[in-house]
Write a protein that binds this DNA or RNA. Structure first.
Length: 763
DNA sequence: TCCGCATGCTTTTTT
DNA sequence: AGCATGCGGA
């Protein structure tokens, strides 16, 4: 029964079995975090807790799905009644159920980012504001940030600091836009992603009919995964749900502050840093053993992350001492970088029998994938790029969904705008603008405007036709299932016909995508699942749409095909590979130029690098190019500062070949000198002259490093790579101690070595 | 209404 | 370079 407990180490077991009270699990990379979470939930069930009393929140659907599958394996089908999902999906479900209490229809629409932006554009245009100053993305970000800070439009308008900040960026009218935006969403019966949290918070806070106590009583055990990525609002909800601070709370948060990489979208790292002071008697459990990576990777990661000040103390370690060092690859151009990475991939596969699917190329920005794509294709290496448009964001998919959305919620203004004249039926921009204008003047929904407004006879008859299509489908939705309605919509709307006319490759693809959507709906209808809390899952069109709106990630990954993975570092979080290539290790790229003058953003970039490095089990290659095409021009970037933050003893830096008599000076990357602006110190910028020296002769078999705490000023020491040297000084404290050592055989400045990592033998 | 060209702007991304 | 957006002309 509790066989699973034996599969855990001591701290893991403690995290799994400490069921009562607040628990904070700091889970280093590869430390078995998912295992702990799943076993903990299984353990709760085995300890007699009812599944519907457990709430487990994740950030992605994928994470929730995978965890659920694993729990079902251990604890059986009752796990289906757990409340488990993303913050958004769980709260959307509750909001739907309690919709009458917040004045929303239960079939409310969820606006995705595109919808939100479209609403905002409409407002900005109508207010005749300059769309460059009031750039939609910026405005949306401000509004989203406001909601995340629980600032209503009224508060926003009153808040001096916020207003003066907008004033400074010459956008004094954002508060007006915000107010109108909220009104418009309400009129459309729509919530954006932030609203799912925002409105849920206010539902609890305003507590109509005691809903707050209802859900507090319901969710007796709460778990939150990836807690370092929660924002202020999510934390506020968590505190409210867990009855904080009135009583004892059974909250278990799991995360790693060192892997917090989503501050740019509101994640607040202080949530995890301050958790201990927010809750009382928090049991802190650290999972510090890394089962994933070799010592070279673990120590490199530890070393680089030590450059970040704000951190929860932990010591990640591994017992895997075998393995190659971290490789640094230096290329002249981006093309050469890609070529050589492709070459290494071939070599790993042919000589070391590593499968393609065990290798990944990680980059900072999606745009970097191009060169690699090209060269992988040339080298006949199968690959798959992740990221970019998801299935549900494709135009043809959204087009059909717009009809379905309108069927479920006719007030959905964005769906109406999208579908009314696509396929074309002669309702042009002018007519649409009139409708929107009328709707906004009279504060009614666009749909109502369309039925009330007098327009030229021709337009009127087109509108009538359109209304009839929607009405017909609405009638159908009452008796038929979601699939039947969707199929009918694809025909009646004329979308299928339109797509069939396009016989180009992309056109055929689009049609296939629409069919794939229909298939997906069919699958949804036929699947017989039990939903959260043990309810029989709702198969209506409306519930399908709700699902789909939050279901952006369709995981295309499968285990059958053998291909190299290409993705951004962000999307690699949580994954692991035998071999990792982190490419574009250059200033301006990684760290991104956007972050260069903000130390806290540099810290986030560093955490991102930490995530990248720790994805690797054994092989890690970091590459940079001296020049590359960027924004249509050749740019020269210095090697990333992060490369200098790696411990030398775990690195294989590219040093020019040792000169053989008679051989011409090396060519290609081996002649690459530090660029003129290059930094002075650091292993990879060493001048060719000094690094070309023969390495100091040390008898490695007799080398016995002394304990780092014994190293002191004035000692003569030996280092495997640098040879004999004298300790000039030691500064810093505890595991941050750094020794300054002058090595006899290595010219130039004395070296500064982190004692925690440097292997030195006292002579 | 629609198409085509000019212009401008480039991080990361989940829900 | 590539993409999205916007404006102007047919």
């Amino acid at each position: 029964m509790s066989e699973y407990l034996n599969q855990l180490n001591d701290s893991q077991r403690e995290a799994v079995t400490t069921l009562e009270g607040p628990v904070m699990v700091i889970a280093g990379p590869g430390s078995g975090k998912t295992r702990v979470l799943t076993y903990r939930i299984a353990h709760l069930l085995n300890s007699g807790v009812a599944p519907w009393n457990v709430l487990a929140l994740t950030f992605t659907n994928k994470a929730a799905r995978e965890m659920k599958e694993r729990i079902v394996d251990i604890a059986g089908s009752r796990s289906n009644s757990l409340w488990m999902g993303t913050f958004h999906s769980v709260f959307a479900r509750i909001l739907r159920r309690e919709s009458d209490k917040i004045g929303y229809p239960s079939d409310f629409t969820i606006y995705d980012t595109e919808d939100s932006k479209s609403v905002l554009n409409e407002i900005i245009k109508e207010m005749k504001l300059d769309k460059n100053t009031y750039n939609v993305n910026g405005v949306r970000a401000r509004i989203s940030a406001a909601k995340t800070q629980l600032i209503s439009p009224e508060q926003y308008a009153k808040d001096e600091r916020i207003r003066s900040r907008d004033q400074m960026s010459r956008r004094p009218y954002i508060h007006v836009i915000y107010e109108r935006y909220v009104k418009r969403c309400e009129r459309a019966g729509a919530m954006d992603f932030d609203d799912l949290l925002y409105k849920f918070y206010y539902l609890l806070r305003d507590n109509p009919e005691g809903v707050k106590e209802k859900y507090q009583a319901q969710f007796q055990y709460i778990l939150v995964d990836e807690f370092q990525d929660t924002n202020f609002l999510q934390y506020a909800i968590l505190k409210m749900l867990s009855r904080y601070p009135e009583s004892k709370q059974n909250v278990c948060i799991v995360g790693d502050d060192a892997q917090s990489i989503y501050a740019f979208r509101g994640a607040d790292i202080s949530n995890i840093l301050d958790f201990q002071s927010e809750y009382q008697d928090v049991k802190v459990i650290k999972l510090e053993q890394n089962y994933r990576s070799t010592i070279h990777i673990v120590n490199s990661a530890n070393h680089l992350i030590s450059y970040n000040k704000k951190q929860i103390k932990k010591k990640i370690w591994t017992d895997k001492t075998e393995g190659p060092k971290v490789k640094i690859l230096r290329a002249l151009t981006d093309t050469e970088e890609a070529k050589r990475v492709a070459g290494l991939i071939q070599e790993y596969r042919n000589r070391h029998y590593i499968e393609y699917k065990e290798m990944a190329i990680l980059y900072r920005t999606n745009a970097q994938s191009r060169a690699f794509e090209e060269h992988l294709r040339k080298a006949n290496i199968p690959y798959k790029i992740f990221g970019g448009l998801s299935f549900f964001q494709r135009k043809e998919v959204k087009d059909l969904l717009a009809y379905l959305r309108l069927v479920v919620n006719e007030n959905d203004s964005e769906a109406l705008k999208r579908s009314i004249n696509y396929p074309r039926r002669g309702i042009g921009k002018t007519s649409l603008d009139k409708m929107l204008d009328y709707a906004n003047k009279n504060e009614i929904s666009t749909w109502r405007a369309l039925t009330e407004l007098q327009l030229p006879p021709r337009t009127t008859s087109s509108i009538k036709e359109f209304v009839q299509i929607i009405r017909h489908l609405q009638g159908m939705a009452k008796e038929s299932n979601a699939y039947q309605v969707a199929l009918e919509a694809s025909k009646l709307s004329g979308l299928e016909k339109l797509l069939k006319q396009d016989t180009s490759i992309e056109g055929v693809n689009r049609l296939q995508n629409m069919y794939a959507l229909l298939d997906g709906i069919k699958e949804f209808v036929e699947a017989d699942e039990i939903g959260e809390g043990g309810e029989v899952a709702n198969k209506s069109l409306s519930s399908y749409l709700q699902n789909v709106a939050l279901m952006t990630d369709l995981d295309q990954a499968n285990n059958e095909d053998d291909y190299v993975t290409l993705m951004t570092i962000h999307s690699a979080k949580g994954l692991e590979f035998e071999a990792i290539f982190v490419v574009g290790m250059e200033e301006n790229i990684f760290p991104s130029f956007m972050t260069l003058n903000d130390p806290s953003q540099i810290d986030e970039e560093r955490r991102l690098f930490y995530v990248a490095v720790t994805r690797s089990k054994r092989l890690l290659t970091l590459s940079h190019a001296k020049s590359r095409y960027q924004y249509g021009q050749i740019r020269y970037n210095d090697p990333s500062r992060f490369l200098e933050e790696l411990p030398e003893e775990h690195i294989d830096a590219p040093t020019p070949k040792v000169k053989v008599i008679g051989e011409a000076p090396g060519k290609g990357y081996n002649t690459y000198d530090a660029s003129p602006k290059g930094r002075v110190s650091g292993h990879f910028n060493r001048s060719p002259r000094s690094s070309a020296r023969p390495s100091p002769k040390i008898d490695t078999s007799n080398f016995r490093p002394s304990p780092s705490d014994k190293i002191a000023k004035g000692q003569q020491v030996l280092h495997l790579k640098f040879g004999k040297g004298k300790v000039l000084s030691v500064d810093g404290s505890r595991d941050k101690r750094v020794a300054t050592i002058r090595f006899e055989d290595v010219g130039g400045e004395p070296k500064r070595l982190m004692l925690k990592f440097a292997k030195l033998q006292i002579v």
